[in-house]
Computed example of a mutant assay.
Amino acid sequence: MSCNSETNAKRMMVVISMVEEWSSLKNLLQVSSEDNDHQVVFSSLGPNQVCDLIVEGDSISLHYAGLKEDMTEEGICQVIDSCFKSCSDGICTFLLLIQGGCYTKKERRLIDILQTQFGAEALKYLVILSVEDGKVTDTLDDTLLDLINDCDGRYCRITSSTASGGLHSLFEMVSYMLTENCVAGYTEAMLAESKRRCADDSAMNMLKQKVEELEERVQAFQKLVQQQEVRRARELEELKTKHAEERKKETAEKQKYDAKRESLHEAVMSHRAMLQLQMRASDV
């Protein structure tokens, strides 16, 4: 689809956050909308919550379904996928909500799941919004800085006192992001390709696992053969040693027998000679 054909399409954002961060953003927007610099309209679309933001005639529709920390990865994937499908008639991007500049373990898990479900390419369509209606961290940690870098610097803040400024920054980042990505946003085709790659990766991992299992079996068989060869070699050596000892014993016994036989032969010969001498003496 061409860039120009998408310019008038409705811009929608799938909100990636836990319930607490979404509630904080809702409260902040409701309070700050009284200054008339922007308009906020909340509604529902099936199980999903929708927040339509309008700033100086420009609009973005935020789609959210409750995410909880104790949900399984499969459950979170289903919720995010449901929000994505509700954006099918517009340009879809993603919005990660964090609170006070803190990128916690639960948000890192959500980003990991987002990339697992939608592929690493989803980060090309991700904006990070810090809701700062209270305590704010002084320094961004390295993991958040790495994510901001992966998102090409798309990080903005919003407070109750400067909500319009934060929304302006958000709108500008979304517009620039869509311009950089030819306006199309994240599409069903990208999701299908991500799932295909995921299936290919799963098949490859399964094949790799089977190869590793086969290699382990081969190694185990080779080890068994080697152990048997070592045992046979040891048994053969023991047998050779036993035979050598037996032959040595037999040789010693034979030598002892020969010596005894020689001694008896000499004794017989000596006794015979003595008898002959006695017989001769008696004849005289």
Rank of each mutant, 00 (worst) to 15 (best):
T104M: 07
V79Q: 14
E69H: 06
H265G: 14
D70L: 11
C102M: 12
S270A: 14
H271Q: 15
I76T: 06
V136Q: 15
L53G: 11
V284K: 07
G100Y: 08
D112N: 12
E193Y: 08
K208A: 14
G134D: 04
K124Y: 05
D112M: 09
C198G: 03
R157W: 01
M71V: 12
T116K: 15
H271C: 12
N48H: 04
D283P: 01
K208L: 14
L126R: 07
D81V: 05
D58W: 00
V50C: 13
R197A: 01
N8K: 09
A244C: 09
F94C: 10
S263R: 10
E56T: 09
N27K: 06
E235T: 01
F171H: 00
E69I: 11
M274G: 10
Y125W: 04
M71K: 06
I128S: 06
E193G: 00
D200V: 01
A192V: 10
L236E: 15
V19T: 05
E250S: 12
M204F: 13
S282F: 07
E237W: 06
C182R: 03
E216S: 11
V136I: 13
L28R: 02
D52N: 14
S33H: 00
H243F: 15
D37R: 05
Q278W: 00
Q115R: 15
E253D: 13
L129V: 05
E235K: 12
L28A: 03
S24T: 02
Q226P: 04
S44L: 04
C156T: 15
S17I: 00
Y64D: 05
E34N: 04
D138I: 09
I60T: 06
Y125H: 12
D142A: 12
T159Q: 04
Y155G: 03
G119D: 03
C102I: 14
L53Q: 12
L97N: 07
K135F: 09
D146R: 08
R247I: 08
L144I: 10
V136S: 09
M173V: 03
L191C: 04
G46I: 04
L178S: 04
F42V: 01
M1P: 07
D146H: 10
T187N: 07
N181M: 12
K223T: 15
S59F: 02
R234N: 12
S17Y: 03
L67I: 15
C87F: 00
Q209G: 10
M177K: 00
A122W: 03
F84Y: 13
R232Q: 14
S17N: 06
S175I: 03
I113F: 11
R108L: 13
E215D: 09
C87K: 06
Q209F: 13
S194P: 07
G66F: 07
I113D: 02
E237I: 00
V136E: 15
Y125R: 06
L224R: 13
D201P: 02
S23P: 02
S194E: 01
D35I: 11
L114T: 04
K249C: 11
L140R: 14
V14L: 08
F221P: 02
F84W: 11
H63K: 09
N48C: 15
L95Q: 09
S160K: 04
Y125C: 02
I111A: 04
K208Q: 05
D138G: 09
L144W: 12
E56K: 08
E34I: 13
L264S: 09
G101I: 12
V31P: 01
L45R: 03
V211T: 01
C182G: 06
S2Q: 06
L53V: 05
D112L: 07
T139Q: 15
R157Y: 03
